[in-house]
Protein backbone atom coordinates (compact mmCIF):
# COMPACT_ATOMS: atom_id res chain seq x y z
CA UNK A 1 0.00 0.00 0.00
CA UNK A 2 1.20 3.39 -0.92
CA UNK A 3 -0.23 4.90 2.24
CA UNK A 4 1.97 6.33 4.96
CA UNK A 5 -0.38 5.23 7.66
CA UNK A 6 -1.94 1.77 7.83
CA UNK A 7 -4.38 -0.18 9.85
CA UNK A 8 -2.34 -2.57 11.97
CA UNK A 9 -4.91 -3.84 14.42
CA UNK A 10 -7.53 -6.29 13.13
CA UNK A 11 -10.25 -4.62 15.19
CA UNK A 12 -9.75 -1.33 13.37
CA UNK A 13 -10.65 -2.80 10.02
CA UNK A 14 -14.39 -2.43 10.05
CA UNK A 15 -17.20 -1.81 7.60
CA UNK A 16 -20.07 0.59 7.17
CA UNK A 17 -23.39 -0.94 6.12
CA UNK A 18 -25.78 0.51 3.58
CA UNK A 19 -27.86 -0.20 0.52
CA UNK A 20 -29.19 1.19 -2.73
CA UNK A 21 -32.85 1.58 -1.86
CA UNK A 22 -34.30 1.19 -5.34
CA UNK A 23 -37.93 0.37 -5.97
CA UNK A 24 -38.94 0.44 -9.58
CA UNK A 25 -42.16 0.37 -11.55
CA UNK A 26 -41.51 -0.55 -15.15
CA UNK A 27 -43.89 -0.08 -18.05
CA UNK A 28 -43.81 -2.84 -20.63
CA UNK A 29 -43.48 -0.21 -23.32
CA UNK A 30 -45.34 0.51 -26.50
CA UNK A 31 -44.77 -2.92 -28.06
CA UNK A 32 -44.61 -4.88 -24.81
CA UNK A 33 -47.91 -3.53 -23.58
CA UNK A 34 -49.69 -4.75 -26.68
CA UNK A 35 -47.92 -8.13 -26.63
CA UNK A 36 -48.76 -8.86 -23.00
CA UNK A 37 -52.38 -7.73 -23.36
CA UNK A 38 -52.91 -9.93 -26.40
CA UNK A 39 -51.41 -12.86 -24.55
CA UNK A 40 -53.52 -12.19 -21.49
CA UNK A 41 -56.80 -11.58 -23.22
CA UNK A 42 -56.61 -13.74 -26.32
CA UNK A 43 -54.12 -16.48 -25.44
CA UNK A 44 -52.29 -15.40 -28.54
CA UNK A 45 -48.53 -14.94 -29.03
CA UNK A 46 -47.62 -12.13 -31.40
CA UNK A 47 -44.40 -11.35 -33.23
CA UNK A 48 -43.16 -8.40 -35.23
CA UNK A 49 -41.42 -9.07 -38.53
CA UNK A 50 -38.80 -6.80 -40.03
CA UNK A 51 -39.24 -6.88 -43.78
CA UNK A 52 -35.70 -5.62 -44.34
CA UNK A 53 -33.81 -8.04 -42.07
CA UNK A 54 -36.16 -11.01 -42.09
CA UNK A 55 -36.19 -11.15 -38.30
CA UNK A 56 -39.46 -11.99 -36.55
CA UNK A 57 -39.17 -10.66 -33.02
CA UNK A 58 -40.98 -12.43 -30.20
CA UNK A 59 -41.73 -10.65 -27.91
CA UNK A 60 -42.48 -8.05 -30.57
CA UNK A 61 -40.62 -4.78 -30.77
CA UNK A 62 -41.36 -1.26 -31.88
CA UNK A 63 -38.16 -1.28 -33.89
CA UNK A 64 -35.72 -3.65 -35.51
CA UNK A 65 -32.63 -4.03 -33.34
CA UNK A 66 -30.49 -4.66 -36.38
CA UNK A 67 -31.52 -1.97 -38.86
CA UNK A 68 -33.54 0.36 -36.59
CA UNK A 69 -36.54 0.28 -38.95
CA UNK A 70 -39.95 0.84 -37.44
CA UNK A 71 -41.84 -2.46 -37.18
CA UNK A 72 -45.43 -1.87 -38.13
CA UNK A 73 -46.70 -5.37 -38.87
CA UNK A 74 -47.73 -7.84 -36.24
CA UNK A 75 -48.21 -11.52 -36.95
CA UNK A 76 -49.40 -14.51 -34.96
CA UNK A 77 -46.70 -16.93 -33.81
CA UNK A 78 -46.51 -20.12 -31.72
CA UNK A 79 -47.81 -21.06 -29.30
CA UNK A 80 -45.59 -24.14 -29.73
CA UNK A 81 -41.92 -23.97 -30.44
CA UNK A 82 -38.55 -25.67 -30.36
CA UNK A 83 -36.04 -25.81 -27.50
CA UNK A 84 -32.84 -23.95 -28.39
CA UNK A 85 -30.96 -24.52 -25.13
CA UNK A 86 -31.67 -25.24 -21.49
CA UNK A 87 -30.03 -25.24 -18.10
CA UNK A 88 -30.80 -26.45 -14.61
CA UNK A 89 -30.28 -23.67 -12.08
CA UNK A 90 -29.20 -24.63 -8.56
CA UNK A 91 -28.70 -21.22 -6.94
CA UNK A 92 -31.26 -18.57 -6.19
CA UNK A 93 -31.36 -14.81 -6.48
CA UNK A 94 -29.81 -14.57 -3.03
CA UNK A 95 -26.88 -16.73 -4.11
CA UNK A 96 -27.97 -19.59 -1.83
CA UNK A 97 -28.57 -23.15 -3.00
CA UNK A 98 -32.13 -23.82 -4.13
CA UNK A 99 -34.05 -26.59 -2.36
CA UNK A 100 -35.42 -27.57 -5.75
CA UNK A 101 -33.40 -27.01 -8.91
CA UNK A 102 -35.17 -25.05 -11.64
CA UNK A 103 -35.11 -25.86 -15.35
CA UNK A 104 -34.90 -22.91 -17.70
CA UNK A 105 -35.10 -22.96 -21.46
CA UNK A 106 -34.77 -20.90 -24.59
CA UNK A 107 -37.79 -21.56 -26.80
CA UNK A 108 -38.09 -20.48 -30.41
CA UNK A 109 -41.80 -20.18 -31.11
CA UNK A 110 -43.00 -21.39 -34.49
CA UNK A 111 -42.83 -18.48 -36.90
CA UNK A 112 -40.27 -16.55 -34.83
CA UNK A 113 -36.57 -16.07 -35.51
CA UNK A 114 -35.82 -15.16 -31.88
CA UNK A 115 -36.05 -17.22 -28.69
CA UNK A 116 -37.95 -16.59 -25.48
CA UNK A 117 -36.49 -17.36 -22.08
CA UNK A 118 -38.84 -19.13 -19.73
CA UNK A 119 -39.12 -21.78 -17.06
CA UNK A 120 -39.49 -25.42 -18.06
CA UNK A 121 -41.51 -28.10 -16.27
CA UNK A 122 -42.77 -31.59 -16.85
CA UNK A 123 -39.36 -32.92 -17.83
CA UNK A 124 -36.11 -34.18 -16.35
CA UNK A 125 -32.82 -32.68 -17.58
CA UNK A 126 -31.95 -35.98 -19.22
CA UNK A 127 -35.16 -35.89 -21.26
CA UNK A 128 -34.30 -32.54 -22.82
CA UNK A 129 -32.55 -32.06 -26.11
CA UNK A 130 -32.02 -29.16 -28.46
CA UNK A 131 -34.73 -29.03 -31.08
CA UNK A 132 -37.35 -30.68 -28.84
CA UNK A 133 -40.94 -29.49 -29.32
CA UNK A 134 -42.29 -27.41 -26.44
CA UNK A 135 -45.68 -25.95 -25.61
CA UNK A 136 -46.63 -23.20 -23.17
CA UNK A 137 -48.76 -23.74 -20.07
CA UNK A 138 -50.74 -20.58 -19.30
CA UNK A 139 -52.14 -19.31 -16.04
CA UNK A 140 -55.93 -19.56 -15.73
CA UNK A 141 -57.39 -16.56 -17.59
CA UNK A 142 -58.82 -15.02 -14.43
CA UNK A 143 -55.44 -14.92 -12.70
CA UNK A 144 -53.45 -13.31 -15.49
CA UNK A 145 -52.06 -9.85 -14.94
CA UNK A 146 -50.49 -8.85 -18.22
CA UNK A 147 -46.99 -10.06 -17.36
CA UNK A 148 -44.58 -12.63 -18.75
CA UNK A 149 -45.50 -14.78 -15.75
CA UNK A 150 -48.97 -15.24 -17.30
CA UNK A 151 -47.08 -18.09 -18.94
CA UNK A 152 -46.46 -20.53 -16.09
CA UNK A 153 -43.81 -22.48 -17.99
CA UNK A 154 -43.16 -24.46 -21.15
CA UNK A 155 -43.34 -28.25 -21.20
CA UNK A 156 -42.39 -30.87 -23.79
CA UNK A 157 -45.19 -31.49 -26.24
Amino acid sequence: MALKERINLPGEARTWYGELPVQSLYTAGDAGDRFLKTLKEKDQFMGSPCTACGEVYVPPKLYCEKCMAELKDWIKVGPDGALESWTEVHVGLDGKRLAQAQLVGLIRLDGATTSMVHLLAGAEPNDLCIGMRMTPVMKPAAKREGAITDILHFRPK
Binding site: A28, G29, A31
Partner: peptide, 14 residues
Protein backbone atom coordinates in the same frame (compact mmCIF):
# COMPACT_ATOMS: atom_id res chain seq x y z
CA UNK B 1 -43.70 7.63 -20.62
CA UNK B 2 -45.45 4.51 -21.79
CA UNK B 3 -42.34 3.73 -23.81
CA UNK B 4 -39.47 1.81 -22.26
CA UNK B 5 -36.09 3.50 -22.11
CA UNK B 6 -35.06 1.39 -25.10
CA UNK B 7 -38.05 2.65 -27.07
CA UNK B 8 -37.40 6.27 -26.13
CA UNK B 9 -33.81 5.84 -27.28
CA UNK B 10 -34.99 4.39 -30.56
CA UNK B 11 -37.55 7.17 -31.16
CA UNK B 12 -34.85 9.81 -30.77
CA UNK B 13 -32.23 7.88 -32.76
CA UNK B 14 -34.61 7.14 -35.61
Amino acid sequence: ALETGKELSWLASK
